[in-house]
Amino acid sequence: MKRIIIDREKCDGCLNCNIACISAHEEGSNFYTVNLQSPDAETRNFIKFDVGKGYLPIFCRHCDEPECVLSCMSGALEKDPVSGHVQYDENKCAACYMCVMNCPFGVLKPDKKNRTKVIKCDFCDDKPDGPSCVKACPKQAIVVKEVNL
């Protein structure tokens, strides 16, 4: 399975990964035009800061045993048996947010605008040129690697 591997020492907190993620989910947008002030602008990855440790990138791990999938009562969250990525189907989701409660790493969140869906990393739909965040990281703090399940 492909996973975004994090080297937190390299992260500079520039938030380009946030912008890339928002842009990847705003149809037709690019770094110049992505509307960061739109109510729909939501990043699926997060950068936290700790005085002692520095910047801490929080990205969905597409876990081997995803707690979010186990908690999902609508079938909206499923681990794709081929890609290994945990995919989310907005149309199935009941917005119960058991998954938000159950992701041990605090990756999931309700959508800001209506609280009718979950904001979750979709690995940029497994598009061939890879995740947008990874491409946008100037520090290579996040890179895609193949990991064994």
Partner: peptide
């Protein structure tokens, strides 16, 4: 937040 308990498995990236 999880950041306060942040650690990574170097092998698997989990």
């Amino acid at each position: 937040s999880f950041a306060d308990f942040y650690d990574l498995d170097q092998q698997t990236g989990e």
